[in-house]
Design a binder for these strands. Structure first.
Lengths: 182, 182, 182, 182
DNA sequence: CATGAATGAGTCTTCATTCAT
DNA sequence: GATGAATGAAGACTCATTCAT
């Protein structure tokens, strides 16, 4: 029986593999997670992973590709916003909008940035431009650097949330929002 | 012949192993670096690693322990500073003071945070308190959150430098300093 | 739609599988050719191979059985020849009569002799007897050994052709013929 | 403890691996012999094979390289012979000089020619030239082709011996020698 | 102190084969 | 008849670690 997920047709087991791999990669890291572990966690034969995803890297790529939407849907709301103040506000509170269900995916994103040095800069580029633009409209002297600063903040807050730091993320977002008088 | 480094007595080979492992762990990651690779890079027998450091994890621990000084010496100058404005300024420009030679060590710190979820928060605690204290003296309303925010920015800048991002770190530091009117 | 080949009823796909397997077994060897490779080359599902031929060995057997005719049709012309001189001549030039299309089949024969130690001696027995008989009629002192010798040469020439050796096979055959004054 | 074999320094286990692999490759074929099977037969851990020979192909190469001497020592005696008649005689009886201990090595040579299409033509080139030269000196009209014919004979006889054919190889050699009046 | 041979468990991956559809 | 998802065993190869020398 077929299951339609992420608007791509997949078998249940294929889906299960992806979920298990995402969870394990996010928790233990890509290299520390063996395909055997993934198979056992997904309750499938190890061979099936390779039939569906070619190799371990293909499995990772599939996970990442399916997640692209998550990233885009998070950014599009900010980038499309016409009101510059609102752009900045939304950017600052972006991390708060991350679904708990998607924590694994985001954790994996951060992990890969360091484990495999997979850059996420390109994905954030539209956001940076939207922010830069917003600060410009609001008459800030150094809009680009203001934008960069917000980006740094977002990454820092996201990282703190995902690592389960005891920092109060919501408080920090409000605090920064106040600083920008938004 | 014995060599005294980091104020601990070590043989040349021991030192070489540590350097090789640091470089490889920082570049490829802990799990992706085999002890065999370390041995070859250090031009020693693989067995020697285990004789000196017990096991792979012991090797990592040794690297980290030796690096503690680097962290402390970076922080002590800020924490000891009596002038609150200077504390903030020094914190902001902290990343600029990192020696190129020590890049591998710092990169490893960031990598481990995600690969092995080794927290470095505790080490930064004194810095946070120094900043909090400084902002308090300067009459800021929310000194703790100000401190936290600076920390977030500092970590972001450091991370950008170590990942070789195309962000202009120096410009960002100056920009931050200006924002805080320092 | 059904196709009649080798006077055995087969589906097109069955035929395609056989051809692909023959080609791949001949080129890469039996063990080095996976059923998956065969299926892909034949553009059929892997399962179909097993439905039609039971298992990989059954596939090989089918190929070999279908080829028996090729061997027989090659030999019958020689064995049936009444003129002893002509028997010898035809034997010598046997390899020249192999169709280019059948090269894969013959290559497989030679390969299997070594890879799976499948003997083809029995198949050549009638030829040996025909030659022995011919030499006898022509008054040779040791007809059996003459026959054996010719067989050795024939096999060597065939082998050279199939391996793409740079030996001039045609020249060799003519040379042999001259030696036997035929 | 070290053992000196084939004038190369090797450990006992290394030697054992080589012997086991030679035997198994010769009996079952290269692809049909797993490294696991080799390890078990040699009573060593599978990993040791890779430590010493890099990979499975490296193991094969090592076997082949060590055997080069066997080939050379067999040929040198013929190639160095000044008397042309003796050259031909020695060539014809060459296969008889193969040591029973070396059967595996020679069987492997024949097997590889077909399984991996490893050519042995180059190795036989000096022999071909020696024969060609000998026939020339003896006033034969087509010395090159005469030489080729002997080569074909040698290969055929060798092949028959190694496959355990019921052909009387010695009788055949004497028979051919008589034909050349040697 | 230092080597490097040796190992057993584990890595990713491929295999022939089965079976529900 | 035909597919392709699914499997378990086996494939080549790597790993951290031990130990005799």
């Amino acid at each position: 029986m077929q299951v339609i997920t992420h608007s791509i047709i997949m078998t249940e087991k294929q889906e299960k593999i992806l979920q298990s791999a995402l969870g394990l990669f996010a928790k233990e890291g890509y290299h520390a997670t063996s395909t055997n572990k993934v198979a056992k966690h997904a309750c499938v034969s190890e061979g099936l992973i390779f039939r569906h995803f070619g190799n371990k890297e293909g499995l990772l790529t599939s996970i990442l590709e399916l997640g692209e939407n998550k990233i885009k849907s998070l950014l599009v709301d900010i980038v499309m916003e016409p009101d510059p103040k609102e752009v900045i506000r939304k950017a600052i509170f972006m991390s708060a909008r991350i679904d708990k269900i998607d924590y694994d995916f985001w954790k994996l994103q951060f992990k890969l940035k360091w484990e495999l040095e997979v850059s996420s800069d390109k994905k954030m580029e539209p956001l940076k431009m939207a922010l830069s633009n917003a600060f410009n409209k609001l008459g800030y002297e150094e809009p680009e650097q203001e934008a960069m600063l917000i980006l740094l903040f977002i990454e820092g807050i996201g990282s703190a949330i995902l690592k389960g730091s005891n920092m109060d993320a919501n408080q920090m977002m409000k605090f920064l929002a106040k600083k920008y008088k938004i």
